[in-house]
Design a protein around this nucleic acid. Structure first.
Length: 421
RNA sequence: GUGGGUAUAGCGUAGUUGGUUAACGCGUCAGAUUGUGGCUCUGAAGAUCGUGGGUUCGAGUCCCACUACUCACCCCA
């Protein structure tokens, strides 16, 4: 259907875009407080970037990417997540040569994944993300978690739980993998088919299976946390110390496994419980070797992504109302012969900073007022024959019906005065 | 990718065991005497009943396919 947006996409209508803008403003403010500056990277990248960065065994890369050949025969992919592009940009522009850490955020960046759309899941969605390159201390991990938490908390999101975990580093993770596999091997036949696949690709995922059978079988499986090397353990403890000191509620969930291969050490999720179940609004973690994997220096980094649509969904679900700005502050109405006077007044009001408009459909005065009322304009300014003759305009407070006739030259200051009273 | 539900004007719905011009509410537009809105009243516009095929004398109503929406699994924001 020509008049139908592609599956899994959603228009943001003029009547609702203020909600996005409201969020974006909050996000910008929160990021700025911690010294993060905006980065804008392309919507598409070379496919290779994601294959190498995100990991070519991940679901995202294997089956969810929008990939195509461009006319120069390059394999191009619409970005399926935000971090790889930011890392590429960081590297390409040699930002690591400046003072580190390098802090950046991206706003309402479109993210594309070929998935079956459902509640809170689209094929094109938008993320607010923050990345910090070049700092290894867990204070940054904590700073990002706190930032995300306070942002959502400030918006009024309730039932927010912060879950953290450490999935180790190339040093200790293989040992854990081995231990986990040893544990799973004798139980393989009892696991579901999905889990047997997971065992091959990413054994950590088996721990997260929701099937009762599998859960029972992995109940006593070894925990990554018991296998962390000294460095990772200390780092994880520092993170907990920071979070504790900040006083926000959090819990360790050793089953958190992220679906992107680049993560090391810290991984975290901000989850809210809604009436339809749990919803992850924000997910992130540390990726200490992504930059080197992409051919750069071995620099530590941390970041997260937050789903804009999901945040909006939560606000909706909790009945949190975002203030809707008036489309107009003043609507100019006029009698048939005075169209030019009205037009000039509108232009003059706009020049003086008022959101102003007039009828453009040759409507009757009555209909103009109806329309003005519908737009929610708090004031009208009317020019009829009498006013045109005298060079005046009749300004009316739509709510109180109070009217005041003043010279057209004084319209702006009269409006200001009436707005304040 | 697998399975369930849904598909009637812009939105929300009705449509009886298949039977002549598909109904209602909201919204939109226009009127209710000459320069004014939110209430009320009146009227108008607006639907090839998701698309395509089939059964039938006849289908919005039954059957099949496709598509979209929606929910669950998987995975994720």
């Amino acid at each position: 259907m020509l008049t139908q947006a592609p599956r899994g996409t959603k228009d943001v209508l003029p009547t609702e875009s203020y909600r996005w803008q409201f969020l974006e403003k909050k996000m910008r403010g929160a990021a700025a407080l911690a010294g993060y500056r905006e980065v804008r990277t392309p919507v598409f990248e070379h496919t290779e970037l994601f294959a190498r960065g995100v990991g070519d065994t991940t679901d995202i890369v294997q089956k969810e990417m929008y990939t195509f050949q461009d006319k120069g025969n390059r394999s191009i992919t619409l970005k399926p997540e935000g971090t790889a592009g930011a890392a590429r940009c960081f590297l390409e522009s040699n930002l690591y040569a400046d003072a580190l850490p390098c802090k950046m955020y991206y706003l309402s960046s479109p993210i594309f994944r070929y998935e079956a759309p459902q509640s809170g899941r689209l094929r094109e969605h938008h993320q607010f993300g923050m990345e910090c390159f070049g700092a290894q201390d867990a204070t940054v991990d904590a700073e990002l978690i706190l930032l995300a938490f306070h942002l959502l908390d400030d918006l009024g999101v309730k039932n927010l739980s912060v879950n953290i975990n450490s999935i180790g580093c190339p040093e200790c993770r293989p040992k854990y993998h081995a231990a986990l596999k040893d544990y799973l091997v004798p139980r393989l036949s009892g696991l579901c088919e999905d889990c047997r696949n997971r065992y091959e690709r990413n054994p950590l995922r088996v721990l997260d299976c929701k099937k009762p059978n599998c859960q029972a079988l992995v109940k006593d499986a070894p925990s990554m946390l018991d296998y962390l090397c000294e460095d990772c353990r200390a780092h994880f403890e520092q993170l907990q110390d920071c979070l504790q000191a900040s006083g926000i509620p959090f819990r360790i969930d050793s089953r958190i496994v992220r679906g992107l291969d680049y993560y090391t050490k810290t991984v975290f999720e901000l989850i809210t419980s809604t009436k339809d179940g749990n919803l992850t609004v924000c997910g992130g973690g540390r990726y200490d070797h992504l930059v080197s994997q992409l051919g750069g220096p071995d620099l530590p980094a941390v970041g997260f992504g937050m789903g804009i649509e999901r945040v909006l969904m939560l606000l909706d679900g909790e009945g949190i109302v975002i203030p809707r700005p008036d489309q107009y502050e003043v609507f100019v109405t006029y009698m048939g012969g005075c169209r030019m006077d009205a037009f000039r007044l509108v232009q003059s009001l706009r020049a003086q900073g008022f959101r102003a408009d007039m009828d453009h459909c040759s409507r009757s005065l009555k209909a103009q007022f109806k329309y003005a009322n519908k737009t929610g304009a708090p004031f009208s300014a009317t020019i009829g024959e009498e006013e045109a003759q005298a060079g005046t305009v009749k300004i009316k407070n739509m709510a109180t019906k109070a009217e005041k006739t003043v010279p057209q030259a004084e319209a702006a200051e009269t409006l200001r005065a009436m707005m304040e009273s």
